[in-house]
Design a binder for these strands. Sequence first.
RNA 1: GGCGAUGUGGUGAAAUUGGUAGACACGCUACCUUGAGGUGGUAGUGCCGCUUUAGGUAUGGGAGUUCGAAUCUCCCCAUCGUCACCA
Length: 938
Amino acid sequence: MRTEYQFREIEKTWQGFWEQNQTFKAQVNPNKPKYYVLDMFPYPSGAGLHVGHPLGYIASDIMARYKRLQGYEVLHPMGFDSFGLPAEQYAIQTGQHPAITTEQNITRYIEQLKNMGFSFDWSREVRTSDPSYYKWTQWIFMQLFNSWYNQASDKAESIDTLKDILATKGAIGLQAVCDEEVERISAESWHAMTEDEQYAYLLNFRLAYLDDSVVNWCPQLGTVLANDEVKDGLSERGGYPVEQKKMRQWSMRITAYADRLLRGLEEVDWSDSLKEQQRNWIGKSIGTDVEFEIEGISDKKIKVFTTRVDTIYGVSFMVLAPEHEWVAELTKPDQQADVEAYITWTKSRSELDRVSEVKTVSGVFTGTYVINPLNQERVPLFLADYVLAGYGTGAVMGVPSGDQRDWNFAKHFDLPIPAILDAQKEIEKQADNTKEGKYINSGLINGMGYKQATETLIQWLEERGIGKGKVQYRMRNAVFSRQRYWGEPVPVYFKPNAAGQLLPYLIQESELPLELPKIDKYLPTETGEPPLGRAADSWKYQGQYDYEWSTMPGWAGSSWYWYRYMDAQNGVEFASAEAVNYWKAVDLYIGGSEHATGHLLYSRFWNKFLKDLGYVAEEEFAKKLINQGMIQGRSNFVYRLKNSDQVTFVSHGLKDQYDVAALHVDVNIVENDVLDIAEFKRSRNDVPADAQFILEDGKYICGWEVEKMSKSKFNVVNPDDLIAKYGADTLRVYEMFLGPLEQFKPWNTNSISGSHNFLRKVWRLFFDEQAQKSIVVDSPATPEELKVLHTAIRKVQDDLDRYSFNTVVSTLMICVNDLGQLKCHSKSVLRELVLLLSPYAPHLAEELWVALGEAAGSISHASFPVFNPTFLEENEFNYPISFNGKVKLTLAFSATASPAEVEAGVLANEQVQKHLDGKAPSKVIVVPKRIVNIVLGK
RNA sequence: GGCGAUGUGGUGAAAUUGGUAGACACGCUACCUUGAGGUGGUAGUGCCGCUUUAGGUAUGGGAGUUCGAAUCUCCCCAUCGUCACCA
């Protein structure tokens, strides 16, 4: 038996034990309630884990262990999102297959994760780049290809039901999500089509579809990117410029689910900020489409979308996006030169320029006028790039009195700013978007209020067929192709129809997985085709048809992985119905907030789709989500004397007295901001052995600053080093003790010794290290000990139930401190304490559990201590006595004393009388078992 | 600019329904113990003031509600996140 806290040996022993005995293997167990706790699986990067990564994993592991003790069957898996750009970029440079790099990185990750003592069920590990996994990603793609969205039933259905509808009723009146331009054919026309033509027509409705769309093209990465992979006009990975380009691409009709994605947010327990980000991304606006006639052109009308149709009498101009397809036609000859110059100028501006010059007004008159349908007024038609081609109709009605951008535009081009509401103020100075007051100068709606005016106008427009109430979403369909190698192949091949046009067809399900072919180089082909084009000669469907050469985006494999964990080895289904119906959905999902609009939105989309098809049980896949705060770096600095022949460093507190330059210093040779000078000299080439140090109190104190954690700033802290020094249990306790899980915080190793000392203190309740013997006794617990213990049981349970991981550590510390004071070595108390501690410090808990005579390994599936309130009952309560809200003293009264008795007792007290100083209180407030407040009049 | 969040000692933080602000931990001070790898213990530590005692003051700033506000309401300031000419 170990009588010293030798954490290295202890941790190694138990990690080996867990692995050997498969202690954390989960299984479908109908006799137990289930709990599914999931971490966002990592991309296995070459750098390995840093100290920020485990934060969320520690929290989820604590929940997993806590729920096991509460009698749940817990699913707590881990895997790897192993397709991605870095491995491929590395392959381009070295020629090494990305699978090899990926494999190496995963091995390293697993080793690091195992060192932390996580209770993962490793038998369920998944890797998105493994064919046995991406077989099912491809399978889901096939289901999407074979489905359409029926707005009548408000769900996705098999494409066969669409065929039936087309055959019987045609597309007239069909409520389906598709492109607006799709021709509404009759049943007769459907029957008149050839099979090829019908197939081509159906492509317009599939949830996975090919489309010419304007995409974010990144030349340096040689691929298209989704909107959420572009930040400020630059690629999120690498920071390369991104341009707009029209390309034929696979897309996903996520917009079909816009409203359900919005509504679903109400039933999940996610943070407000995250839900709000998703709402903004979906961007629902309720408004009206209105058609404006064009002067001199009778066969066309310009359609605008507005959320404020009530302001239509205030229109003094109209603006089209420069990319609008009618621009050429609508430009009058004498304006042609100006318009062309403007379009050329807008094209020359990068996405970045546009974003950074939001406030500048630019635009050009087309020479054309349009007619306001309400008052027949003629208003000039402009082009301006503040109108976006991709949103709404690409046309906007200008209402300068109510919209600041329109106001700026009107001022710039000297256009009228008519008032429309009597409540608008100072519209000659700025726009006023109020909805208050009564309408003026507004024909039909004069004298009405906002609501009535809007309803009246929509009705008026709809009756005449020139307008319609409409819901508009900002969210676009998701581009699903990437011109890269290291991703899932799309299970599609192209076959020409009678006219020689290539149409996409799915391969057979039995042919899955469609594996990545070997290629010579991981670069685009000489003709600019994606890397898979290099395999073209040998890699053909049925030996003759080209496969799709682009691969799936990074988010494909991560949009359903929680289901694979449920039944990871299944060879015939992505997961069995039995597994899906038992585990259902994730009860607790922990990961970074950077996935707010990417992964979390796409995952919800795929989940809803799979639900529609009846493959999964729940509409929302993650009931509760916590975003762990990012851990920032905490850099240390030394201050080098400028203009000195001798290399000299000045301690932080004295630096203001000298002329110094701050230099980063490796945080790993600094402890509590005190520099290890010998190590500093040894590790740096630029610091000679005779360097001078101006110290304060005999120490060199470093300055510090919060920055991003990065190698160049010498502030990366590796968890392996800390585990070697203090043990995994200490690291786990310390990371939780840092503060609330959700909070952003700088990493600071300074106070880790407190957590380590705490675990040593626990150890000393069990062992006398000097005498090298156990000091646990069988004697019954005293009332004081039971009170201390049960106070902790209650608080630990309450805090874990509200995910307050940091305060649990404090509670355990207080409990251990108090038991130490009481010199408690009673077995019955210590047994419960070990259970409380075990989710946080599992290795230590296992060791102590055995020391108490329990069976090895049985602590993981033991029962959580039961709180007993009778141990906390007190005969007396110490009332704080306050005067006008300020506490001056405390007085003890019987816990059962009535408020009147307490009041009488307080007023009879000598000290209270002294504070009263002869004055009579105007009121005495007694809150039982809380406080007494004596109110003194002024 | 919109939206969301946050603001408490030298530091990380706690205060769950409004009820003794600063638990717990780091750091620091003093003393005892120990004496080779991040020892153990005792006491103290928000700020101002005092020899000690009183006492005063304090949760970004200002106002308000209340017997009582870190907590609720309004205005302002700062920081972080996010979207960003979305009609």
